[in-house]
Write a protein that binds this DNA or RNA. Structure first.
Lengths: 111, 111
DNA sequence: GACTATTGTCTACATTGTAGACTCAAGGTT
DNA sequence: AACCTTGAGTCTACAATGTAGACAATAGTC
């Protein structure tokens, strides 16, 4: 990994979703949040790969579900954005925001 | 290329820069616009690869500089975002926008 | 015990991002 | 004329990111 590497498009969405779910960010919910926001499909493989890569970069960290309900499946992982991750996300969004200025008309309702 | 493929992070920035430069979008200027907005370096190789890939997807098109000044170098290519490209950009930004709602505080000055 | 549902892991491959060397032409310098 | 510099663009190779789908493990239900 290069130093100060910027975030990919999907990585941005994952970090945003984790922030949105604040304190309740488990993989299945993250997946749904992104699908809803983007009107697109997200496979579990894609999501977990990205979560793991963000963890490697120290942009995310997780703990086991502190309150594991009795249900099927492996114990859930509860994700949290690190300060470093938040900083990277800010930097990444700043570029988009700057280049979006003045294009509200052309970009239509998206902004 | 898959159908309805979404835009990468750098692809978004390139399309935005072309829109910003409206009618005056040549590769060197696009490069500067992105560097300024993102406070980062953009090599020519990275930019031309992406421009060509966006052209292949029909998100961008170009014509030779209609008013070629007498100067060094190959004739410049003047880029333009196609309607399809604009639609793809809107879709792509919509996801970020949706997931950003309510996070203004946490994301700080970036929004 | 078999079946189903939920979570996560793993592997392979496709797409996107990046760096740097190379080419080519116009104009200035000597 | 020969050379250098500058400004465009091309090409190749590789790294990082995105995606799909098969597999594993566990808890409840029947």
């Amino acid at each position: 990994m290069r130093e100060g590497s910027s975030l990919g498009e999907f990585e941005q969405l994952v970090l945003l979703a984790v922030l949105q779910l604040d304190g309740d960010a488990y993989a299945p919910g993250i997946r749904i949040a992104i699908e809803d926001a983007g009107s697109r499909r997200v496979t579990r493989g894609a999501l977990y790969s990205t979560l793991d890569r963000l963890e490697t970069k120290r942009y995310l960290q997780w703990r086991p579900d502190p309150n594991p309900p009795s249900r099927a499946g492996a114990p859930r992982r509860k994700f949290e954005v690190t300060p470093t991750g938040l900083a990277a996300l800010r930097r990444s969004l700043a570029a988009v925001t700057a280049l979006t200025q003045g294009l509200e008309r052309k970009l239509g309702a998206a902004r």
